[in-house]
Amino acid sequence: MGGDLDAGWVATIRRRLLAWFATEKRDLPWRADRDPYRILVSEMMLVQTTVAAVVPFFERFVGVFPDFEALAGAEEERVVKAWEGLGYYRRARQLHAAAKAVVAEHGGRMPEDPAAVLALPGVGRYMAGAILSQAFDRPEPILEANSQRVLARLLAWTEDLATTSSKKRLWDAAARLVPPEQAGDFNQAMMELGALICSPRSPRCLFCPVAAECEARRLGIQDQIPRTRPKPAPTAVLEACVVAVREGRVLMVRRSGPGLWAGFWEFPTIHREGGDPAARSFGDPVDLADGVERLTGVRVEVAGQVQSITYGVTRYRVRLDAYAATVGGGRGRRKPLPGKGLSEAAWVDPASFGELTLAAAGRRLVAAIIDEPEAWGLARP
């Protein structure tokens, strides 16, 4: 026997990783205690996001919503606003729904039963294992990007990690490795090792506490593992929006739900080419002024292009061309526009931009407007 089927190998991995983690772990705010609420918030935030990026958002979020009751009782708009800037807003809504479920079904306390934890909105097998092991020291395995890379190298697993057989193999290994005690520390040690030492490229094997037990290093193939299929190139999308000014105020629209940016404010935007990740198209080509009038009921006179912003969302790479505009007549509508995803249009004082929930592209455009208001037809404050 060898690897995770060898009791001696398993015991060595456990002992060395726990000793390494005790001295080398990072001081992270959700590690200050075993509060399952803070662990859940951190795990929701860490999905496809780095620890360094999450820390300030985590501290801001738990400062506003310190526990399940506070989060469950909040309006969704406040929750999304507190999450603003982190991306993956579906996670914010799932976290909100999970808090409501914990309060309604479990008296405001995270359940310790694995099935009950898995039943919470947005919680999958990995997140359930992270919560149960870290908060309650239950020996539940985890498998996420960092830990699966560590396991693949330890076992010299050369198959594509996206396959069903790979996932089963590595989940089985994770289940054998997690110890009956200090399970939370061990699981965090696996992730920490992947983040700090066993990196995707050029792993720092000389500093690894389990290098002597690593089969990939023994074979000299650590740089070839893990093997994954290449991601398809993002779909190119072209959008256009207007910054329309009337008496010192700017025309904005708020998107209805459900959807990617439900409840978010944005500058009136239409699609010109490519896919339609936010469903703003009309089904037929329109020029920018006509599109804005269909969305808002306001006729604008489009001036020149002032800004171009490129951003990524899901599987799209979007270029947003922003134009200055003045008002030609009409009034902003305040009733839903069927099929267009807009719930209202309003004239907004630029001083109030910070009160609105905006996607990343909108925040970048707001920064450009505040930095150079004259270019958009606004007076400098």
Rank of each mutant, 00 (worst) to 15 (best):
G73M: 11
A104D: 12
F264L: 05
W265G: 10
A82E: 01
C205H: 10
L337I: 15
P268T: 03
S166A: 15
F65V: 05
T50P: 08
W30T: 02
V41K: 08
S199P: 00
F61C: 04
D185W: 09
G263C: 12
R31L: 13
R109S: 14
V51W: 08
A156M: 02
K167M: 11
Q188C: 12
F57A: 09
A19H: 04
K25T: 11
D27R: 15
M191G: 07
A189W: 00
A183S: 13
V123R: 02
A360G: 04
V102N: 02
A278H: 15
G8K: 11
A359Y: 13
E159T: 11
F282A: 07
Q307D: 15
D371Q: 13
E273V: 02
A244Q: 01
L151A: 00
A368K: 08
V64Q: 14
M1V: 10
A173N: 08
I309P: 09
G362I: 03
P350M: 01
L251W: 12
P226K: 07
S352P: 03
Q188S: 13
G87V: 01
L120C: 09
L295R: 07
T357N: 04
R90T: 12
E77Y: 08
R15I: 01
R16L: 11
R317Y: 11
G107E: 00
Q224Y: 01
P29T: 06
F267G: 07
E215C: 03
S42I: 01
R26Y: 14
A216M: 03
R78S: 14
G87Y: 10
A325P: 09
F264P: 02
I369A: 11
P230F: 01
L17V: 04
G329K: 02
T23P: 03
Y126C: 06
A303K: 15
Y323E: 09
Y311G: 06
Y323R: 07
V366T: 09
A367L: 12
L143A: 12
P277K: 02
G124L: 05
A99G: 06
L18S: 09
G328P: 04
A216G: 04
V298S: 06
R169P: 13
Y88H: 08
K231N: 06
E215Q: 10
P139G: 12
E75Y: 04
P338W: 05
S256H: 13
A115N: 10
P226L: 08
L219H: 06
A101Q: 04
A173V: 03
D137Y: 11
S308N: 14
F136T: 06
R16A: 10
L28G: 12
E213G: 04
P180C: 13
G248C: 05
A379W: 03
A324G: 10
D6V: 02
Q305W: 10
V327G: 00
R333Y: 10
H96I: 02
T326L: 04
K100N: 01
S281W: 13
A368S: 15
A279W: 12
A101S: 04
R380F: 09
K25R: 15
G63W: 04
P373S: 14
R218E: 12
I221S: 08
F57T: 03
S133I: 05
